[in-house]
C-alpha cells in the first residue's frame, strides 16, 4: 500500500488521470497543471477560516432581518429569531434553524481549526477519525445556506407596504460571508496532507 506521491505519480486534480510527475507539466488529458498536493493548502484554509472567525461576530450580533410594522422597526438577530420560534410553539423548526445557523458555522470553524492544528503539531490521532470529521464538516457546511433561503422567501411573501414589511439586515451580509468563507476553507483543504503524516503506513487504526 503506497500513495501515488511515493511512487512518483500524480493524480490530476481535474480529471483524475494518474500521470508521472514532472515539474511544471500539464495533464495530457485535460491540460490542468499537475501538482502533488494543492498549492499552499494549509495557508489558504487558515486564511479563509480566520476571516470567517471575524465575520461570525457581526453575523450573530447584528440583525439578520428587520420587521417594519406601521413604521415601527423590530430587528431580529439569528438567536432572537430562534427564541421567537420556540415561543410561538414550533420547537422542531427552532432546532433546525438553531443547528443550521448557529451550531453548524461555529462547529465548522472550531472543527477545521482543530484539524489544522492537530495536523501542524503532528498530534497522534487516528487518521480515519480525523478524515471522518472533515468529511462531516464538508457535508454539513452547505446546510448553513438554509437561513438565507428562508429570509429570501419571507422577504418576498411578507410585503404589505406601510403595514408590514420584512427587509434583510446587515447581519445577513455577514452571515452570507461566513457561509461562503467556511465552504471555501473546506474546499481549499487538501485531505491528502493528513495521510502524508503517516511515516510507517500504519493506517489500520
Amino acid at each position: 500500500m503506497q500513495s501515488a506521491k511515493d511512487a512518483g505519480l500524480v493524480r490530476c486534480s481535474e480529471c483524475a488521470l494518474v500521470c508521472s510527475f514532472q515539474k511544471n507539466s500539464r495533464c495530457p488529458r485535460c491540460n490542468a497543471l499537475l501538482t502533488f498536493r494543492q498549492t499552499n493548502s494549509l495557508q489558504k484554509t487558515w486564511a479563509f477560516l480566520l476571516t470567517a472567525c471575524i465575520f461570525i461576530i457581526p453575523a450573530n450580533f447584528m440583525p439578520i432581518t428587520v420587521l417594519i410594522s406601521q413604521g415601527k422597526e423590530t430587528p431580529d438577530t439569528i438567536l432572537s429569531g430562534v427564541i421567537t420560534l420556540v415561543e410561538s410553539g414550533s420547537p422542531g423548526i427552532a432546532i433546525i434553524v438553531f443547528v443550521a445557523s448557529i451550531v453548524v458555522p461555529l462547529a465548522k470553524i472550531l472543527g477545521m481549526g482543530f484539524i489544522l492544528i492537530s495536523l501542524q503539531l503532528k498530534l497522534n490521532m487516528s487518521h480515519r477519525m480525523r478524515f471522518i470529521m472533515f468529511k462531516f464538516i464538508d457535508w454539513v457546511g452547505r446546510w448553513s445556506m438554509l437561513d438565507l433561503f428562508v429570509i429570501s422567501i419571507m422577504v418576498a411573501v411578507i410585503d404589505k407596504g406601510q403595514l408590514l414589511v420584512i427587509v434583510p439586515g446587515p447581519g445577513a451580509t455577514a452571515f452570507a460571508s461566513v457561509v461562503i468563507l467556511t465552504l471555501l476553507a473546506a474546499k481549499s483543504f487538501d485531505t491528502r496532507l493528513m495521510w502524508d503524516l503517516e511515516k510507517d503506513n500504519d493506517w489500520t487504526n
Binding site: L17, V18, L34, W195
Partner: peptide, 16 residues
C-alpha cells in the same frame, strides 16, 4: 507526461 490508465489514486488519501 507519461500516464497510466490502469491505475487509480484516491482523491482524498492518494492511495495508489
Amino acid at each position: 507526461n507519461k500516464y497510466n490508465e490502469t491505475l487509480v489514486a484516491c482523491e482524498h488519501c492518494d492511495l495508489l
